[in-house]
Design a binder for these strands. Sequence first.
DNA 1: ACCTGAACACCGTTCAAGT
DNA 2: ACCTGAACACCGTTCAAGT
Lengths: 236, 236
Amino acid sequence: MVERVVPEGKRQRRRPTKQGAVLSERLIVETALNLIAQHGAEALSVRRLGAALGADPSALYRYFRNTDALMLAVADELIGRAQQGWAPTGYWRADLRAIGLRIHGSYRSNPQAALLAAHRTTGRPHEMRAVETVLGVLREAGFPDGLAVRVYHAFVDQALAFAAQDAATLALPSAAKEADAEVWREVYGRLTSDTHPHIAATFPLLAADMRGSGYPFALELMLDAVAALKPVADAR
Amino acid sequence: MVERVVPEGKRQRRRPTKQGAVLSERLIVETALNLIAQHGAEALSVRRLGAALGADPSALYRYFRNTDALMLAVADELIGRAQQGWAPTGYWRADLRAIGLRIHGSYRSNPQAALLAAHRTTGRPHEMRAVETVLGVLREAGFPDGLAVRVYHAFVDQALAFAAQDAATLALPSAAKEADAEVWREVYGRLTSDTHPHIAATFPLLAADMRGSGYPFALELMLDAVAALKPVADAR
DNA sequence: ACCTGAACACCGTTCAAGT
DNA sequence: ACCTGAACACCGTTCAAGT
């Protein structure tokens, strides 16, 4: 089996493509992010990316062994950006809230990559730091180890699960996104009280609430419940 | 614009395909679920589905206007299977717990299909019934409309988000699944207290807890918090 | 009324050849 | 050493024609 992908540091020479681009992992990842940002998730294909780079599509296979490897590189770039500039305050509730909303927000900011990243254990430095940070917030606040671990698990999985869920919605092709929105107007908005009394009675509230993410409220409920389980009640 | 998709109830005659199959929405959805269960989510294409049904691929466009509509029908079938044989007990906590665990379980038992289905709003009968049921449990328990709607949203999104998250893990190719498990032994198991004190201190507890799903505990935390918000406290 | 088959405009990926 | 171009094996979807 031939190893076709040369690690980024070991490349010796580079020849520009016909259109003059000098390829690199970094350039490819950034071009991919731009492509998604400008033309939507469905615009990311090897062929389009090649065109955007000014290279033959097949040239990308010298840098990434397949599309999945490219997506993971993009995801890793985003995990790095997400953790930048945050420090714990010493208040466990505020810290967990901030971490949860940051994970959720960063995944939402690049839904396509988030979908591939959210259900994998990478064991990479950024992920390790996040695990250590969350466990540290709980243990230093006085949660005993057994409880800290269970809360860590529920908290992180909730953040990742909602992040992936909301990213998935954002990553839908725009036609599907509109179809989902139309369902609320055209289907749920027309149900009557003889067949669906609870939907009919609450429809305007329901349609308004469903426009946003359920995560912020779900996170607050979790923090409420965790506070009630904490052995030594305090204001932090 | 021509309306090419005839509603299921209004079809008049049916001619078997060359290979003798008599098509229907139901047969197509069930064949799609079988295809996914047997050969993975990536095996689901209009062309393969046509072949599995013994029909020309383009014949499916008489039943679903595009692939997206077919996916919504598959999603709704999963929701329907989750609700089969369940009836409310009148105890809101027990009812929400049962519904949450059923959704989670149904999606986990069809992980490949769940991945394609869990983040869509179908607007189809099974989904409509589920929405009505959950809202009904909350409103009949005495939650005021505004709170019932917010709790409904957080509850349903959390169930679907965890279901998709856990389904994603189950749907990984077995090589990737093992690689993820190895990360816990080989990476997190080797971290020392000088760089990652909290992980090092709790590792055995952590590794054990992470083997299961975080959903049951997260659900219980949500029910705890919701009980505390309920205007009239009661034992139900 | 319903199904077919050809056609169109795309995909990801491989590999021998070119520079 | 790196990029190219053709080729392969797929996609989803449309529409005139067939039954």
